[in-house]
């Protein structure tokens, strides 16, 4: 037996209607046990109504060294924020 169980990323939905949010990670031999462990580790204070577990290895992350090319270009483009439109009165609050 390998000494380490694989790592799982845990997502919990706190209330009906909200999105699942990443809460942390834990070790478990398989997905079913990962759900049980997540229940015990992350929902003991009544935090959750739903749990997702994802093998950490299935997540492809952007590389920190690509930060510049990936994110810098959007830095100075205020016109991408929808703040330049006058909203007609009859639309009301958006």
């Amino acid at each position: 037996m390998s000494s380490e169980w694989p790592l799982w990323e845990i997502f919990i939905r706190g209330q009906h209607g909200l999105n699942h949010r990443h809460v942390g990670s834990l070790h478990a031999p398989d997905a079913e046990m990962a759900v049980k462990h997540a229940r015990d580790v992350y929902t003991r204070r009544n935090e959750g109504v739903s749990i997702w577990v994802v093998p950490s290895s299935a997540i492809t992350a952007s590389s920190p060294s690509d930060k510049g090319p990936l994110f810098d270009p959007s830095n100075s483009k205020v016109y991408r924020h929808p703040t330049f439109f006058d909203i007609p009165e009859e639309v009301g609050k958006m």
């Binding site: 834990l26 070790h27 478990a28 049980k36 462990h37 015990d40 580790v41 003991r44």
Partner: peptide, 11 residues
């Protein structure tokens, strides 16, 4: 034996 079981047992 592992942290996850530790918490599960304590619960």
């Amino acid at each position: 034996p592992v942290l996850e079981e530790d918490i599960a047992l304590a619960n």
